[in-house]
Nucleic acid binder design. Structure first.
Length: 606
DNA sequence: TTAGGGTTAG
């Protein structure tokens, strides 16, 4: 790399002879070079200017060299930047911080931390820019220990109230899954801005605390200090998705449109994901089709959404479409298409895609893909093949438990107690998913009629104090959330109604040829997992059924005609109408817009 | 008068 830099300089030296007016240092030349470095559009221009800087005798000037370093970093030429840094007679805090930030940008956060270690051996002191960069490196690495140590230095050196440093700290603690520490930093801030609020909202959203994320977003909007930007809206949409909260998701979508962020691809991708997770893949598709040139991420989001909804053919069509448009799939895309094949019974196609991953698409299969294939084979009863696959691959710690957990479920489902036993043994030995492994193995014994072993395992769990938290699932109906815990319907006021509905659904599904995963075991005390399964299995259909009961179609659209909405709201309504069904729109608009004498005075959806 | 923070798919 260093050799190529020299070559470039030789070439550009020849070129620059044509207009060699910068052989001597003067301040105008310096200003000109800096402007060139800040605005140059390609590496050739950068190296040409570099050559002229050298000829003009400015190569020892710290300020100009810092600009050169940052210019090379802009083109991701970190080795060029580091060589310049090494050759500097005098480096200041900007030189150090620029190079550290460059390494973070180039995906080498560890080198940035190593540079900080080197810097501590000099007389140059770090400033708030340096700390923000270092904390960002810790965030990427999810290195809590290093992050805490740098936080300590931040406080000692008096940068603890800097807004940018604090926002980085919130993000770092969030990425390390330490929500309380992130909140402590957030609460300690005297002045916050949209970035600090976004960091905290994102922390909640990414740590399964969607309700807290939405609550904080409400607080932010009530303050009316700044408008939410696309970063914040993305996190809010993501929180709605994690909660499966369609109502909040649609309201946030309305806000996205009103604040003119609907053309942002990242926001649109978040919406695609949110609608799919809320069970409205049809809306996902509408949002997706409005993205002019979707990259691999929106495509993958749509592929995964369709896959989870059982629309395997749609997933595969989208996959083919992106290949035709020369968009390169990545590892996540393959998780999506394999998942689609698995859930739609497209085994041959799934195996064909899996086998072509490396050769045709240059994506190396990893534990996620092995698990998808094991799941795909297991679902159709090809448990032996799934078992052979799992035994033949080497996977890391987390991937290992997921892969063998999948094998355990498949073997239990198809009565292969031998494989279930081995999968459980592997999980218990690896000290992961231990309680789940005990319960599933116990169920496998019960399914095979081996009640003695089933009870013995349960006794063992009691004696050793292994306890599995009951699973739960939830649905949101008309802005209320209904939570179901495995094996406990007593807290639900509509238990009888729900159970009779489940029976009815099960009956109809059987009529259509559905073969249940659970049999008479479902209502035996020992089988809490089985109950969990039946509740989660039907929750989506339950939501639909409740929808039919409690949300009749035909909420009159005439109401809208009597209302005069402000122009913004009217535009929002028109756009949303294009995306979602009308009866929902009417409810949403009536609920979240404020009307006075038939005139919309709405300033905010919230 | 150069360097720093928050977003989307599994």
């Amino acid at each position: 790399m260093r050799q190529s830099l020299k070559s470039n300089l030789v070439i550009t030296h020849t070129v620059s002879r044509q207009h060699n007016s910068f052989f001597h240092y003067d301040s105008n030349a310096k200003t000109y070079f800096i402007e060139q470095l800040q605005t140059c559009k390609n590496l050739i221009s950068a190296t040409t200017t570099h050559s002229n800087v050298v000829k003009s005798g400015l190569s020892n000037d710290t300020f100009t060299t810092n600009h050169l370093i940052n210019c090379y970093i802009r083109f991701l030429k970190i080795n060029h930047a580091h060589k310049l840094f090494d050759e500097m007679p005098q480096r200041n805090v900007v030189s150090w911080t620029s190079l550290m930030a460059g390494y973070v940008t180039c995906g080498r956060p560890n080198t940035a931390l190593w540079l900080f270690h080197q810097m501590q051996g000099t007389l140059v002191l770090p400033n708030e820019f340096t700390f923000a960069t270092l904390i960002n490196a810790c965030s990427i690495l999810a290195s809590l220990d290093m992050g805490r140590r740098i936080h300590g230095r931040v406080e000692v050196m008096g940068f603890g109230s800097n807004r940018v440093v604090c926002s980085s700290l919130i993000d770092m603690y969030g990425k390390c899954n330490h929500v309380d520490e992130a909140r402590m930093v957030f609460d300690s801030m005297c002045v916050r801005n949209v970035v600090s609020w976004t960091s905290m909202i994102t922390t909640y959203a990414q740590n399964a605390q969607g309700h807290h994320a939405l609550q904080l977003f409400r607080e932010f909007t009530h303050l009316r200090m700044e408008k939410p930007n696309h970063f914040m809206l993305c996190s809010v949409i993501s929180a709605c998705a994690s909660l499966g909260s369609l109502g909040s998701g649609k309201v946030t979508h309305g806000m996205v449109i009103r604040l003119c962020h609907d053309a942002n691809d990242v926001v649109a991708t978040a919406l695609v994901d949110m609608y799919a997770k809320c069970g409205c893949v049809h809306y996902s598709d509408k949002v997706f089709r409005r993205i002019p040139n979707p990259s691999v991420i929106p495509y993958t989001s749509m592929i995964v959404g369709a896959a989870k909804y059982g629309l395997g053919t749609l997933s595969l069509q989208l996959f083919q479409e992106m290949i035709d448009r020369r968009i390169k799939p990545n590892d996540v895309t393959f998780v999506g298409v394999l998942h689609a094949c698995s859930h739609s019974g497209l085994i041959d196609k799934g195996l064909e895609l899996f086998n072509s991953m490396n050769g045709k698409y240059r994506v190396m299969p990893d534990s996620k893909h092995y698990t998808c294939v094991a799941d795909m084979l297991g679902r159709v009863g090809r448990v032996e093949e799934a078992y052979q696959l799992a035994k033949s691959v080497h996977v890391e710690r987390d991937g290992y438990s997921i892969l063998w957990g999948t094998l355990l479920s498949a073997s239990r489902l198809h009565g292969r107690v031998d494989i279930a036993f081995e999968a459980s043994r592997r999980l218990i030995e690896s000290n992961q998913q231990v309680a789940g492994a005990y319960v599933t193995l116990s169920n496998a014994y019960a399914l095979a009629g081996d009640w003695e072993n089933a009870h013995q395992l349960r006794s063992e769990m009691k004696h050793t104090g292994i306890c599995k938290e009951p699973g739960s699932s939830w649905i949101e109906i008309k802005n209320s959330t209904y939570v179901f815990h495995a094996g406990d319907v007593s807290k639900c006021s509509q238990a009888n109604e729900i159970l009779s509905l489940l029976k009815e659904l099960k009956h109809r599904m059987k009529e259509r040829g559905y073969v249940g995963r659970t049999t008479g075991l479902v209502f035996v005390d020992i089988e809490e997992e089985a109950k969990e399964e039946i509740v989660s299995l039907h929750s989506e259909k339950l939501a639909l059924a409740f929808g039919l009961i409690n949300m009749p179609k035909g909420v009159t659209i005439r109401v809208m005609k009597n209302l005069r909405m402000c122009r913004d709201c009217h535009e929002s309504f028109k756009l949303i109408s294009d995306i979602v069904e009308r009866d929902f729109v009417v409810r949403d608009v009536n609920r979240f817009h404020h009307f006075k004498n038939g005139l919309c005075t709405c300033g905010d959806f919230w």
